[in-house]
Structure formats: C-alpha cells, structure tokens
Design a protein around this nucleic acid. Structure first.
Length: 557
RNA sequence: GCGGGUGUAGCUCAGUGGUAGAGCGUCAGCCUUCCAAGCUGAAUGUCGGGGGUUCAAAUCCCCUCGCCCGCUCCA
C-alpha cells in the first residue's frame, strides 16, 4: 500500500532534489530560464537508469521475453533519429499546421483566443454575451435577428455589463457605441444586422476610425489581429537565416521513426509485426511551463512505434496498453497513484481507434492525475501522410500472409501497416518515481527517504566502516573495490567513513540507496557484515565473502 | 496572459531604512562499536537581476526574471 501522493509536500520534494543533486534549475546563476531544468549527478543517473530500463525491456528483451497476442515473441528494434528533420516532415505530420493556430490576443486581459473559433467561443462560452443577449427583444415573426432595445442595453451597460465585460465598448462608452448601432439599424431597415454584426458593434467605439471590432469573450475588450501561435521551436540550418533555411526542433520523436520505417524494414530482415523504439529530446513551446519538471519546454521521450497488420492492430493496442501499465508498476509506481485511463470517444483523434494514458497522481495534480505515457492506436495515419507528402512508397510486403502457393510458400500481402504508439515521458517518469519514492516518517532517525526501486536508484549500495579505526576502513576499502568492480555498470557503489554512522545512513536514505553495508566488530571477529535495508531500517548479518552474491540477488542481476 | 504568493548561505527561514543572521547541512580535527549523537573549529552571500529615492536600501519606489498556487492554455 503506497502513501497517497497528495499528502506529500511538493516543496519538500523539490528541496530534496536540489539538496542532493537530483534536479537543478537550468541556468540558475543567470536567474533561471522558464521551462528548462537540469539534472544533477543523482538525477542524471536516475534518469539514465530509467531510460536503460525502458531500452532493455522494450528493445533488448521486449516485454521481458513474453509473447505478443499473435503467440510469438515480441520483436522490437532501436533507432536514433535527428532532432532536426526535413521541414516537410512536420508539414506531413500535421504539426506545422496544428502547432501554429492563429491566435488573437486580448488587449484588455491578455487572454488568447483561437481566431477560427472566436465566434463559436463567444456564443457558447462567453458569460457577458450570454447576459447581454437577453436584453434584446425577441426576434419578430419570420426573422432570425432579435430586436434592439436601446434602453435595456444602456441599463445593462451600467449594471451587469460593468461586472461581466468591463472592457466592452458598450460598457465603457454606452452612448456613442449605441448611437452607431442605432444608426446602422435605422439606416438600412431592409437588411437588419445579424447577431455577429450586432456584437461587433457592441465592441466598437470609434466605428469611423477603426471599423468594426471583435470583442474578447472574457472581458469584452478589443481583440488584436490574428497572429500565428508557434508551439514548435524554430531555427535555421545554414548560415543565412532565410525562410528557405528554416527548420524546426522536433516536438516528438515519433516522426523520425515513421520517416525511417522503410529503411528499417528493408535493411534489418525484421518481419511484421515489429516495433521501432527511439528515445531522445523533444521541444515544445508550452504556453505555461509549470509544475517543476512536469511541463518542460525541452524534455525526453521514449517512444515505440509498433507496426502490424490492420486486422491485428486492436489486439496489439490492448497488449501494449496493458504491458506499459504493468511496466511502470514493475519499476516502482505500484499503487493507487497510478491509473490507466482510456480516452473517451470524443477525445480521440479522428484517425485513432483508441488511446489510453498511463497517469500518475503527482502531489501537484492531486486529486487529479498527470500523463506519464500515452498509448495511441494511430492507424496508418502517419505512414499515409508521409507517403502522400514525400511521394515514397511506404507499404510493406508481408511474406507471411496471403494464400498458400503450390510450392508451399505464401503468396504474400502488400499493405500499409497500422501503428500502435506507446510514448512515455522520461522526465515525467523520473519525477513520478521521485514523488512516489519520497517518504517522510518522523519516527525514524532519518525521517526523509526515497524508496526507489533498486533498478532505478542512482547509488546501489554504500560501504561504511562502523568506526574509522581498528582496521575497519581497510576492510571496507577492499569490499568497496570488490563491489564497485562487480556493479559499476548499474550505478554507483559508495564508500563513506566520515562522521557518525547515523548521518551516513541518513544521507544514503535521501538519495534512495537501497542497501548500506557496515563493517563492524563482528566483521573483524567472524567475517560478517551488517546489511541495512533502506525502507525498513532493519539489519541482517551477511558473510563478508557473500556480500557480492547477496547484492546480485537483490539487484536482480 | 491574468490574479495571488514568493525570492536572503547547499536546505529551511528570521531580519520593515543604520555593521547581513539562525538552525540544519557541508568540511576539518577529536571522540564514537549502528541510526542526522557529542565537543572544537572552519568555509560558504551578485540579499533573484537592473534602475531610482536616500547621508545610508535586504528593507521604500519603478522595471524585469525565476519559482509556487488559482484561472487560462495544453496541437
């Protein structure tokens, strides 16, 4: 039973991350830079362990060697693609269009509105619009447009309007604003204004100077001109910073995989179904980077694009969804703070037959959850798009399918594979593991500690001489050398003889070291050491010459 | 982007116009036979940054940056 993460103070977790070298603010001595974080020595190792665990369990030995829904071992290969791709990649994927919606900024309250959804938003979601529309008299028989009632509008402007739409022209200067509107209505009785035109009038004070204006759905102030809202980072490949040389930092690693799908299929003898995994940095100009490292502008993803025959795709989708959930549990997020959430139909992309999120209840999202990984059924959307935009043929000739030929072989089938995409956020994963592991127990001598899974812990073990005399440091030194030789590839093995034993335990508890090995009087007499367990603070005796084997077993190697 | 809060040592924070502090941590020495123990000593500050007011600014004013919370946004 894990502790509810909402009870964990985020401040204390952030302080520990800084204090013990897990996470630092990027460019801190310059005042920091919004949306960017660095990892200290402990954090770098933790994140590497997480990335390695993913690579091992997804690429080197997919799904711990278990079979997929087709009854055969899961086959995945690795790939490493560039952060900067040909600009057309983002055109094909839809990011260029989708990431650059024209937005209009409100001059009054700073609110951003999507230009193409402005009127929809005003009619359905604007509080002041909902209020002011009631001040019109009902539309006369046979017409759509409600009738203007200047008196009621004037009253609204002086009462409710002041509260709901303080920056609306009608509220700021009702006489002038209304006079323009009345002039319009009376001037062209044969074509009464539609509702949109009326509302634009309400937002316009100096019609002859500015023309009709559009109001902010929130405060009524005049909206600025539509401007592209760029969520992709741009830079230039080439010395001249011209439009021709403009390139983008990738907002996701997946597209690199789709673009190289054909090469991988053609050059590795791998057979359908199979996955291609890619880890690496991605960049998004988040509107509001917040919540520590949760929403960073530079972040790392671990994505698998799993390709299969369309007929099998739903089975694979379910398989990956369930396995990824199991995987996060295995490395330490077992408990109520982790959920698998299947997207509702209306949340799905038009091409998707299913998407699930693995979500963690972070202290700062609690009682809600934040996304750790999304598992999406992408159909053949991406390959279709790249095929269309690049002109390359990306379909796959599957020799395991088709009718059986007289010679016993199969005829084969050509198709555009479907893709299941489990896409994990490594920084979010690292943060979740730290939050989940963070524990405070005031009854302990070392109240704060990180319950990290041994596979994830940056330091695997520490060796202490109980006291720095009587030959203990020498024995400890020797044991430390032996254990380092054996386990250095997994992470640190530390040795510490300074200060009291309690402080040394406490330090190791805070960085989540699962085992501390103490050389004591018994070591000198009967060749045993004391192994202390981080989570329970209990101790057990182990033979000096069995410590390596003991740790091997505990660390699962 | 708006609103609220906040920023002083590695961490937590005190310091409201007059010599920059405490606790913890860190480091060194002594002591110490299992849990941040004790003793002695030491190091560590652009008081987030810039400008202004003042004889004098961590403190007052303006601008700016970061972080946290609530909105908003989240392809």
């Amino acid at each position: 039973m894990t502790q509810d993460s909402s009870k964990k103070p985020m401040d204390a977790i952030m302080a520990l991350c800084k204090r013990r070298g897990f996470i630092y603010q990027a460019s801190e001595i310059y005042g920091g830079i919004n949306g960017f974080w660095d990892y200290g020595p402990m954090g770098a190792q933790l994140k590497k362990n997480l990335r390695d665990a993913w690579w091992q369990d997804m690429i080197l030995r997919p799904c711990w060697g278990r079979n997929g829904p087709n009854g055969k071992p899961v086959r995945n290969v690795g790939l490493e693609t560039c952060i900067i791709q040909h600009p057309k990649v983002w055109e094909a994927s839809g990011h260029l269009a989708g990431f650059a919606d024209p937005m209009r900024k409100c001059a009054g309250c700073g609110h951003f509105v999507r230009a193409d959804q402005l009127w929809d938003t005003i009619v359905t979601a604007s509080e002041w619009f909902a209020s002011v529309i009631q001040e019109f008299d009902p539309a006369p028989e046979g017409t759509q447009t409600p009738r203007l009632n200047a008196e009621r509008l004037m009253k609204w402007a002086r009462t409710k309007g002041k509260r709901l739409a303080p920056n609306l022209a009608l509220v700021r200067n009702p006489e002038v604003t209304l006079s323009w509107l009345v002039t319009r209505v009376n001037g062209q009785p044969e074509s009464p204004p539609e509702i949109i035109e009326i509302v634009r009038h309400l937002a316009t004070e100096q019609l002859n100077v500015t023309g009709l204006q559009d109001p902010c759905p929130r405060c009524g102030a005049v909206l600025g001109e539509p401007a592209p809202f760029k969520l992709m980072f741009e830079t230039f490949a080439g010395l001249t910073q011209t439009e021709d040389n403009k390139v983008y930092l990738r907002p996701e690693t997946a597209q690199g995989v789709f673009v190289q799908f054909k090469n991988v299929a053609d050059t590795t003898r791998i057979k359908m179904p199979f996955g291609i995994g890619n880890t690496g940095r991605s960049f998004r100009n988040e509107i509001t980077p917040r919540n520590f490292t949760f929403r960073s502008r530079e972040f790392e993803q671990a994505e698998l694009e799993f390709f299969c025959h369309p007929d099998e795709s739903l089975d694979w989708y379910k398989f990956w969804r369930d396995f990824r959930m199991e995987w996060w549990k295995e490395i330490g997020l077992a408990g109520e703070n982790l959920i698998l959430r299947e997207h509702e139909k209306d949340e799905l992309s038009h091409y998707s037959q299913g998407t699930s999120d693995v979500e963690y209840r972070f202290p700062f999202t609690s009682p809600g959850f934040g996304e750790l990984e999304g598992i999406a059924h992408r159909g053949n959307y991406d390959l279709t798009q790249h095929q269309k935009v690049s002109g390359a043929k990306l379909d796959f000739f599957d020799t395991d399918r088709g009718e059986i030929l007289p010679n016993g072989g199969k005829k084969g089938e050509r198709y555009l594979p479907h893709c299941i995409e489990p896409a994990a956020g490594l920084d979010r994963g690292a943060l979740a593991l730290i939050c989940e592991g963070y524990t405070r127990d005031d009854s302990r001598a070392s109240p704060e500690f990180l319950k990290l899974h041994p596979r994830i812990a940056p330091v695997k073990a520490a060796v202490f001489p109980l006291v720095a005399k009587d030959g203990m440091p020498e024995v400890a030194e020797k044991l430390h050398a032996e254990l380092s030789d054996k386990f250095w590839k997994l992470g640190g093995v530390e040795m510490d003889e300074k200060q009291s034993i309690g402080k040394r335990y406490a330090r190791m508890d805070e960085i989540g070291t699962p085992f501390c090995i103490t050389i004591d009087g018994d070591t000198m007499a009967v060749q045993t050491v004391t192994v202390r367990d981080r989570d329970t603070a209990t101790q057990q005796k182990v033979s000096l010459d069995k410590v390596g084997a003991f740790l091997s077993e505990k660390l699962g190697v």
